[in-house]
Amino acid sequence: MIKHLLSMDQLSAGDITHILDTAEQLQGVTDRPIKKLPTLRGRTVCNLFYEASTRTRISFELAAKRLSADVINFSADSKSSVAKGESFKDTAWTLEAMGVDAIVVRHGSSGAPQQLSQWATASVINAGDGAHEHPTQALLDLFSMRQRFKDLSDLKVAIVGDIVHSRVARSNIKALVTMGAAVTVCGPPTLIPPGVRSWGVEVSYDLDAILVDLDVCYVLRVQAERQSEQLLPSLREYAALWGLNSKRLAHLPEHALVMHPGPMNRGVEIAADVSESPRSIILDQVANGLAVRMSLLYLMLGRTDDAEVAAGVTGA
């Protein structure tokens, strides 16, 4: 298994399948009366979060704890060293000196996890960096799709919204293309990155035209500041042209799913009734994040020769 997970580029279709299969096995643990495996006993995982996050940080923390790892949380928004102006590199060295085994990092600057991996000997897991990647989100999204569709290779997926600023879009596009899915990105031209066709996707500016032929409509969060950056005339216009409302939902094929990485702006990119409709698997995504992150930590940090661990998983 890889030492660091920085980008979906690092994972082949076989790797992804292995991670998802392992997650499937580990998901059983959640249903047991004692929700813990001893796999990472004695290991230390640090959640290093330079950006506010609820679901990702909690999901990683819970995943590590379910595997019996010790977890420390370091958030830039708390009264931490960052407030005193300690550099990213010094923080990395400090964690090194304390002997952590893995650093789960969320950072507003694209590439920060890659830089961290050059300074630290611990495993680095990218929990979202700037507008670059969010690999574990893509893995949990694939896991969620696979629960419903079994085979990812023929799926028709649209990723709708602010592609240019979205790390979720980048990781999901790479993951889906690797698995053989057909991906269309859709949104206003100002939010579609230059050269996006080289990623192996189709581009559409017309959501209504592509809806009718989708298996998954993956909706991205659109932030209010895109208006002040002259990228959008208004959120109202965005909602009218690219928002997934109940009228559009009716045009989706009956089997098609609605997904969203959260947090949602209800009424902008997705209508409240759509997010709560039976077609939406948004809460499944959240739940599956735990199993997928357990799987990753297990595969990246676990000792494969540990018989107890193997028994724990196969017995699940």
């Binding site: 694209s110 960096d129 700037g130 507008a131 670059h132 990647e133 990155p193 230059p194 050269g195």
Partner: peptide, 12 residues
């Protein structure tokens, strides 16, 4: 600004 900046998630 170009294909590489788009992939790296950096403003061009």
């Amino acid at each position: 600004e170009g294909e590489r900046a788009s992939v790296l998630g950096l403003r061009g």
